[in-house]
């Protein structure tokens, strides 16, 4: 079984069939991203792995290598990873209309669900028992977020490089103690990151 997958991967240049762009295809693309979005709890990386399953293994629209590149670009660009991934796949298959259809399929389910939740929330927000439930859930959410922080922080520590740790410390002090606007901190850091990257790449190139 795994051998078959391997060979499929190897000659995927011939196996992958870029679908014909017609109304049926757009319907199929919309339905694929819509169902992916509905059944994905728990963040962008989950949807990306499900998307790979659908687009590569089931529909054979793209190959594994392309999917990996799409994931890299999706997770390193601004915006929700799931939306970015859909846009990449959609654009690859059918240019701008494909990208827009795929993105629409991805954002419609959360829009519909949260609209309903929002209307319901206004009705029940002063309910004692709903309040009690949130009383129990709020510390759990804090734990989820801080545990994610810890998971992301560990690789920074492991690299033992000064600049990343310094950037972490400085931006934390700016954000937490001095309440500097986060957009401002991000812009400054992106500028610093571009300079650091360019200098680093130049050094690597000179060697």
């Amino acid at each position: 079984m795994s051998h078959m997958k391997q060979s499929e991967c190897l000659d995927n240049k011939t196996k992958v069939v870029k679908p014909e762009v017609n109304f049926r295809f757009f319907l199929q693309l919309f339905w694929a991203t819509f169902t992916l979005s509905i059944f994905t709890f728990g963040g962008g990386f989950v949807i990306i792995s499900l998307m790979r399953k659908k687009m590569v293994a089931t529909l054979h629209w793209i190959d594994d290598e392309q999917m990996m590149d799409f994931v890299t670009i999706a997770q390193s660009s601004p915006g929700p990873i799931a939306v970015n991934g859909s846009l990449m796949v959609g654009y690859h298959l059918a240019k701008l209309p494909g990208a827009l259809v795929a993105a629409l399929g991805t954002i419609l389910p959360p829009m519909i669900i949260l609209s309903l939740v929002s209307l319901g929330y206004e009705a029940v927000k002063d309910n004692l028992w709903i309040d009690a439930a949130f009383h129990g859930m709020r510390p759990v959410v804090a734990a989820i977020v801080l545990q994610v922080t810890w998971v992301l922080f560990k690789p920074l520590l492991a690299k033992k490089k000064i600049i990343p740790l310094l950037m972490f410390a400085l931006s934390f002090v700016a954000l937490y103690l001095f309440k500097v606007n986060i957009m401002l901190v991000m812009v400054i850091c992106i500028i610093v990151a571009v300079i650091v990257s360019l200098v680093g790449m130049k050094k690597a190139g000179l060697r």
Binding site: I163, F168, Y176
Partner: peptide, 20 residues
Amino acid sequence: KNVLENVRPVVVAAIFTAGL
């Protein structure tokens, strides 16, 4: 890729602040 790797610490700091 390089730039985003260098922006990462700031993102972690921002998430940490929100978590706190």
